[in-house]
Design a protein around this nucleic acid. Structure first.
Length: 946
RNA sequence: GGGCGCUUAGCUCAGUUGGUUAGAGCGCUACCUUCACACGGUAGAAGUCACAGGUUCGAGUCCUGUAGCGCCCACCA
């Protein structure tokens, strides 16, 4: 074995080997209890970031653990075509060539995108391999591959035919850079310090008014100086955050109960800058307390205004183009960018003295989640899914517990959104994605949805249109004529998430019934980030309930966000991102995985910096060295083969080791069942490092270097077996290191008599297929003498040894100086037991240059204390007697305080009456212990002349 | 405006149904390069569990309120 562990070569070697040997591949034919997981498909444009590392490590831990438990495990991998994101990437590449997508045309552009996918789409998937993700790569899917596209078409047509997909003319979120509609979820609200501009709208004078007498009142308002010079003009002041939209105003609204404006309702205003006449309307929606209480109504650019427009039959004037520049409707401002137009409009209003005031106003502004451009609410004709009917069963599924969230609090978030769900805008004005399968007949104007491109119009085929007879084909069933130029398909594509929400069943072959789908659906655990609950999790539950008649998964584990050590979200623009591949390069994939798991508690955000990954690296080194140590001894032991446990040869520390291993196995299993991956990792870490390495391996040295061959063989067998089980426990977290050691230690194929089951040939080769360790049976524990007393003895012994070492440190005695100390054990049984083990104790202490004498206090001079009782240390001029007396006095006071508390507790009638017997018993024992300790301390204190 | 989370050792955080003297990692102090490991070992210091009330025999843990920080949702122009 090499002195140093080389993760790089090891990780590459084993990943290739696992894949080549089909260790990740799932097969229905093998039967058993399924454990299925679908990966949250990363964007095909993605590169591995810390969020992926966290998400996929969690999944891989669960998946590997379940696999070892003997479940029939499938981890379905794949990528998302990420409509807008991918199109952006390809457009950027085109731009470098000085081209635009329009130069290529739709078909060529799509072909170009597929080429890009073919060349770069595998990046993230290969990075997942570096992380160690044990996905069933043979099943890898892509949201635009043939099968998934079929599922999308199937779902669209079903919803369309049921009337759950409809086309609507309404205000949607428009990204002027991507030039497409977005769903509400795709518009991210960012708190922004904006302004509330107060603009004065002149009131048009009635006939006979003095202003009207000037002829054209509009002209007068167009020239405020003139207006002022001639007459007093009445104004209605409105407040707005988006002044440029005023060009599209078709009314101003006030609350009908607002006395300030009562007289103006029904009057006409003259819209500044455009001189359009617009009415003052009354609408309950208006909040009298906000702004001026008068609101400009722009039905084409604001959802509320749109609704008001509907209520009051107002026209809608769209003043913007799809790229965010002002449209022809904007008159003099046409062609200007919307923000430039805003500046100009403000300036112009100011020049005409129509800007009453400007108040700073913080508000949330929508940004495109793909390109961060400010989203424009805009009137548009789009496709929508009616969500309420889909939401109802999905709400019930969570309420009834068919789907459970971890942590549970996310269920509230889910309910909140689902109960107030709004229709989902699914059409996108881009090219990369699933084309909306809606067709229109140019002859009869019939519109319908079809899974495959139709060649003729069904309405016309029904006989309403005379048609040519077809040779050899029954016209009622199939039409083989070339596509009719009369039939046109909707140009838009579907929202990326329209394919993602089918992922848990489309990846298993739906809409076709098949064994995989039947066996693996519903999946078990879905692991994802909180920001994706609405985009994906909720919609998957809806789709599962709707199309499969069952939930898509039983558990949803929502993990936290990975942040930098200052708590900021990692982002490219901040430059505070850690690259998982850097961490893997510097510390190893195992270190990345283990550290992440160890520092992340269930569902909480995690703060990371580079140094945090030392934990995992150090742990790996520790284990590597422990293995080297054992290997060194097994190599020395010629022809070493493990022997079965001989109860006659077992000593306390052996029993204690088996005991703590048992506890660790139980704890790890239970924690993993409840998604407590941190606690499970801690239990493994603590067992291997503290119990196995620090205590047992040190303890075992005396036997390994001793002369008793039978005992040495027993100890070696025991420790290698316990180490094998430790590797199994650790394998889900550190797959590479454990696999390497599994082979280095010769566990692959070796027969371990203490192991819980004989390996079958197919499972003997890899830890990944080794069975998850089971706690020992009662019969074994009985036969081996694993009793509670064992733990008590070993605990006593450890404290005793610790006390000896502490003496040296406390009195600052050189390591070279031999110390014999004496212990007066508290209870006789322990003392007797430890005396019986005196020889091994002596050996154990030899390296510390210590020697202990049990229960002979009278012979020695007083020294210090440990929990077991009194420890005496020969003075030999090593101790400052006065200082020691003071120390003991302080100790005495502390113990007396504890005793007082306990006494008070036990004297309390309510406590005795109500506390559980176990707690009372505990307190009684403690009372006894404290009383004895105090008696001893008092004696000691006297000895020191106190 | 609603909802959620956090506040425990110098730092980052655990603490699972309320129950011995509240834990870990890092950092810190002292000693040790002893034949697996200095990415190590041994021993140690360090916390009025944000604040104020309440329930209880007993509260870091349950309830109410306050403060600070953070996140999510929301059409107040």
């Amino acid at each position: 074995m090499d002195k140093h562990y080389d993760p790089k070569s090891v990780e590459e070697k084993w990943y290739a080997w696992w894949e080549a040997n089909g260790h990740f591949h799932a097969d229905v034919a093998q039967g058993g209890v399924p454990y299925s997981v679908v990966i949250p498909p990363p964007n095909v444009t993605g590169i591995l970031h810390m969020g992926h590392a966290l998400n996929n490590t969690i999944q891989d831990v669960l998946v590997r653990w379940r696999r070892m438990q003997g479940r029939n495990v499938v981890w379905m991998p794949g990528t998302d075509h990420a409509g807008i994101a991918t199109q952006n990437v390809v457009e950027k590449a085109l731009k470098k060539e000085g081209k635009h997508r329009d130069d290529l045309g739709r078909e060529a552009f799509i072909a170009r995108t597929w080429e890009w996918k073919k060349e770069y789409g595998g990046t993230i998937v290969n990075q997942l391999r570096k992380l160690g993700a044990s996905c069933d790569w043979a099943r890898e899917r892509f949201t635009m591959d043939e099968g998934l596209s079929e599922a999308v078409a199937e779902v669209f047509c079903r919803l369309y035919d049921e009337g759950l997909i409809y086309r609507g003319h309404r205000i949607i979120n428009w990204c002027p850079r991507c030039k497409t509609a977005l769903s509400d979820e795709e518009s991210e609200h960012v708190d922004t310090q904006g302004n509330l501009w107060h603009i004065k709208y002149p009131v048009k004078a009635a006939h006979g008014d003095s202003v009207a007498a000037h002829g054209n009142p509009v002209a007068a308002y167009g020239n405020p100086v003139a207006a002022h010079g001639v007459d007093a003009v009445q104004f209605l002041t409105v407040a707005t955050t988006r002044p440029e939209t005023m060009l599209g105003d078709t009314a101003v609204a006030v609350n009908p109960n607002d006395e300030r404006y009562a007289s103006l309702i029904g009057k006409t205003l003259v819209l500044p800058l455009v001189n359009r006449e617009i009415p003052v309307i009354a609408d309950e929606y208006i909040d009298m307390a906000f702004g001026t209480g008068a609101v400009k109504v722009t039905p084409a650019h604001d959802p509320n205004d749109f609704e008001m427009g509907q209520r009051h039959s107002l026209p809608s004037i769209d003043v913007m183009n799809d790229d965010g520049t002002m449209s022809a409707e904007a008159g003099a401002y046409a062609g200007l960018d919307r923000f430039e137009a805003r500046k100009r409009i403000i300036a112009d209003l100011e020049a005409q003295d129509l800007l009453a005031k400007v108040d700073p106003h913080p508000h949330a502004v929508g940004h495109c989640y793909r390109c961060d451009t400010v989203v424009e609410p805009r009137l548009s004709k789009q496709w929508f899914v009616k969500m309420k009917p889909l939401a109802a069963p999905a709400i019930e599924a969570v309420r009834s517990g068919k789907v459970a969230f971890t942590p549970k609090r996310w269920e509230n978030t889910y309910f909140e959104w689902m109960e107030n769900i709004r229709d989902w805008c699914i059409s996108r004005q881009i090219w990369w994605g699933h084309r909306i399968p809606v067709y229109t007949c140019g002859v009869c104007a019939h519109e319908w949805a079809a899974k495959t491109a139709p060649t003729s119009c069904p309405k016309c085929l029904e006989g309403e249109r005379p048609r040519e007879p077809l040779e050899g084909k029954c016209p009622a069933h199939e039409d083989v004529r070339p596509p009719s130029p009369q039939i046109t398909q909707d140009p838009d594509v579907l929202d990326t998430w329209f394919s993602s929400w089918l992922w848990p069943f489309s990846t298993f072959g739906w809409p076709h019934d098949n064994p995989d789908l039947r066996f693996y659906y519903p999946t078990c655990d879905l692991t994802t980030a909180p920001d994706i609950i609405f985009f994906w999790v909720a919609r998957m539950i809806m789709a599962g309930c709707k199309f499969m008649g069952d939930v898509p998964f039983r558990n949803v584990y929502i993990h936290g966000t990975v942040r930098d050590d200052k708590g900021r979200k990692m982002s490219k623009s901040l430059g505070n991102s850690l690259d998982p591949l850097d961490i893997i390069g510097q510390y190893s994939a195992d270190a990345l995985r283990f550290s992440l798991m160890l520092i992340t508690s269930t569902g909480m955000d995690v703060y990371v910096n580079m140094e945090k990954f030392e934990i995992g690296r150090n742990f790996a080194t520790k284990i590597w060295n422990a293995a080297r140590f054992m290997k060194m001894h097994t190599d020395k032991c010629e022809g070493f083969a493990p022997v079965p446990i001989d109860p006659a040869l077992l000593r306390d520390d052996d029993r204690h080791l088996l005991d703590t291993l048992d506890a660790a196995i139980a704890a790890v299993t239970e924690h993993l069942e409840k998604f407590r991956l941190q606690d499970a990792a801690l239990a493994i870490y603590d067992f291997i490092w503290s119990n196995f390495c620090d205590w047992y391996l040190e303890y075992a040295k005396q036997d390994l270097n001793g002369t008793d061959d039978a005992r040495r063989l027993q100890v070696l067998s025991l420790m290698t077996d316990v180490f094998a089980k430790s590797l199994k426990l650790l394998h889900p977290y550190m797959p590479f290191l454990t696999e390497e050691l599994w082979h280095e230690m010769g566990y692959a194929g070796a027969s371990h008599p203490v192991a819980e089951a004989a390996f079958t040939p197919s499972t003997a080769t890899a830890v990944i297929r080794a069975p998850w360790p089971a706690p020992y049976t009662e019969a074994q524990r009985e036969a081996w003498g694993l009793h509670a007393e064992t733990t008590a003895y070993v605990t006593a012994k450890r404290e005793l040894v610790t006390a000896g070492r502490a003496l040296r440190a406390e009195y600052n005695i050189a390591p070279s100086k031999f110390i014999a100390y004496v212990i007066d054990a508290l209870d006789e049984a322990t003392a007797t037991h430890l005396r019986g083990d005196a020889e091994s104790l002596k050996q154990q202490l030899r390296s510390d240059n210590l020697e202990v004498i049990i229960g002979a206090g009278e012979r020695a001079m007083p020294g210090t204390l440990c929990k077991l009782g009194t420890i005496y240390l020969p003075l030999d001029g090593l101790i400052d007697v006065a200082a020691e007396a003071a120390r003991i006095k302080a100790e005495l006071a502390k113990e007396q305080g504890f005793l007082n508390n306990v006494n008070a507790k036990l004297a309390n009638e309510s406590f005795v009456a109500k506390a559980p017997p176990a707690v009372i018993e505990q307190q009684r024992a403690r009372q006894k212990e404290l009383t004895e300790t105090i008696a001893r301390l008092e004696k000691l204190h006297k000895t020191f002349g106190g």
